[in-house]
Design a protein around this nucleic acid. Sequence first.
DNA 1: ATATATTTTTAGTCTTGTCTAAATATTAAT
DNA 2: ATTAATATTTAGACAAGACTAAAAATATAT
Lengths: 217, 217
Amino acid sequence: MTTLSEENYLKAIYHLGKQDGEAVSTNAIAEQIDAKASSVTDMIKKLADKELANYIKYQGVSLTEEGRLTAKAVIRKHRLWETFLVEKLNFSWHEVHEIAEQLEHIKSEKLIDKLDDFLGNPTHDPHGDPIPDKYGNYTKIKSKSILDIKPGNQGILTSVKDSSKAFLKYLNKNKLALGDTIKVIDFEPFDESFTIETKSKTMTISKNVAENLYLSI
Amino acid sequence: MTTLSEENYLKAIYHLGKQDGEAVSTNAIAEQIDAKASSVTDMIKKLADKELANYIKYQGVSLTEEGRLTAKAVIRKHRLWETFLVEKLNFSWHEVHEIAEQLEHIKSEKLIDKLDDFLGNPTHDPHGDPIPDKYGNYTKIKSKSILDIKPGNQGILTSVKDSSKAFLKYLNKNKLALGDTIKVIDFEPFDESFTIETKSKTMTISKNVAENLYLSI
DNA sequence: ATATATTTTTAGTCTTGTCTAAATATTAAT
DNA sequence: ATTAATATTTAGACAAGACTAAAAATATAT
């Protein structure tokens, strides 16, 4: 059985390792988790002892198969709870992250399976991120950042890379939501801004915004 | 802000003090919480330091107004989550206690208010126990144990005192559920058993069962 | 290739919440 | 009213998870 703290480290390593099991540095984890590097070293050793991580001193950590499955189980819980909060309790998507950070550590497989059914077995959470099934499998919608889309092309907004409160509030304010059809009209090299068109309006977005919006073509 | 452990102690003291602020003994808490008496003494001191409890050495503890409010807030969360699990996720009432023990410590006032609304602001949980509102107020349905009901009288099963898995499973097996009308037919002094009648059948119950069934007349 | 900077690890400390064993109070019994 | 039994508290220890400061390893730059 994993502790709350262990689960947070597993999640961090999973995300930083880009899901494919790349080795991750101590400092990167420390930053992600907002802890000191020395604390990270301590915890990594514990994870390695429990065979959840592969660790070679000074060489970084990666997850074992079991560690990866555990990480995905936590992510599954996080995303299902976020979906619950938005779909059933009418939270706005920028409010749910902190609460889901707590809920993701509740231990009961039956609970999460029933929640999954209650929500209609969703495949993606309110930010467009894929929800792993109970075996850890998921399919990511093929999409690319507006940064990589040539003017003239359009697609459907399927996910946002940045899930920070500030960014989600920006999207709300500008009435951009998942599922919207967005057409890339123009790219301005001077400030690297884009002009995009939605059903309701035409607007200009900064490079910073563009790189966080993912469209499926 | 209270820790998970503190919240469990507050709940225990609240329940043992019969809600009216009676002083509770160290040993009683130790048994309730399944800890050693020395651990209880330590924690009591912390609660007193935080002004959540009144403590005089060797004389037991009682809750302060703030302690009582905190305890009721935790109980509110516990009972709302139990209601959610039974009503929305289709859990059986004997399965929900352990999960609610975890969920009751999730910190977000907004979450619990929205959950309350989502459930239709229920006044009682699946065991018939009252759910405090956000100010800590609740009304307990006036009811008495079958032990105290004279044969010939009837009432509606409004709550069960024992919420253990074993007892709830017994009730399920015998098709006794909250809301059922129950008539007390006979009392047998020899083994202190009762004969009761429900819509569907007549059955005999032991003293042990009778004392845990509460009817409103 | 060596010096410097950066990253990582180690050693030792702290807090929270628990425990055991021993000491002290309180309660019950003769 | 003592003594015996029970309840409670204190003292000291431990595990988890975090921290600081110092040491060691690795990476970078000249």
